[in-house]
Design a protein around this nucleic acid. Structure first.
Lengths: 133, 133
DNA sequence: TTAGGTAGTTACCAAAAGGTGCGTACTTGT
DNA sequence: ACAAGTACGCACCTTTTGGTAACTACCTAA
């Protein structure tokens, strides 16, 4: 009957936990939730805060987050339109985890950059058969 | 000269921190790193552990993780082939963050499922203009 | 009157992600 | 002699993701 309610382990494809992880671990979701963790914002403010996001992806992702109960949408029903988005209780609990992820990225990118440079150098330097013990 | 080394904030597109976040917050990476956090594994074991991943995506993602210095590849140079993958120091520090994300998903998916059901019901029940304050 | 700001939606198109199947090279088991 | 297992690489194709531009509806300011 219910197509999505099996073993609650992220390693099981097609279980709700995996679906939740896939939602939560996607680039625009992490950024939007992290931005809203700072304070509630309107459409325009989010657009300005999150460099590189398009209006389309912002709206699309916000709808998805609203649908999953992570963000709350407040429409003041005025004209010109005034809509604010803020985190729900669940969204807030998630945002603390995502912020540690943000911080990890901001702290560890130099290591990743170095590793990449090394790796690419090793590949280009010719001796192709050097990936052993 | 260097195309990717600006403001170290994830909100800035095209900075290394953002690139790192995008790598790290992608579905296969989170699952592979979480699996390897349990213990080092070979190709076949990862394939069995991570339900739904294809051989192609596994190899592709492992190479990307190896390139970024998050996992280490050990080829015993035997025949038949015997290759094991394990986390590097950096990979391990990341995996602790990702495991809290896994646990969040496994604990909170019921709330998300409920929210989705509510939302979809509200949409289908007809009264289309009820998303206000 | 005309432009601009608000928060969108829609249609169309390009790029990226990902699946499937086949080939490789060598060994072991039947 | 032949199939199977290991750890892939490559080519082909479909699906998903995301960008761009145009349009809506209403108000305000010049």
């Amino acid at each position: 009957m219910d197509s999505h309610k099996k073993d609650p382990s992220v390693f099981d494809a097609d279980c709700s936990a995996r679906h939740a992880l896939e939602l939560v671990a996607s680039k625009w979701c992490t950024l939007i939730l992290s931005a809203l963790a700072e304070h509630p914002m309107r459409n325009g403010a989010l657009l300005r805060r999150i460099d590189g996001i398009s209006q389309k992806m912002l709206t699309q992702t916000l709808r998805e987050l609203e649908r999953n109960g992570l963000v709350l949408r407040e429409d003041k029903q005025t004209v010109p339109p005034h809509v604010t988005y803020r985190l729900s209780q669940t969204g807030q609990s998630l945002s603390t985890v995502l912020l540690t992820l943000d911080r990890w990225a901001e702290q560890n990118f130099p290591a990743l950059d170095r590793a990449k440079a090394d790796y690419d150098l090793r590949q280009s330097v010719g001796h192709k058969s050097s990936r052993s013990v």
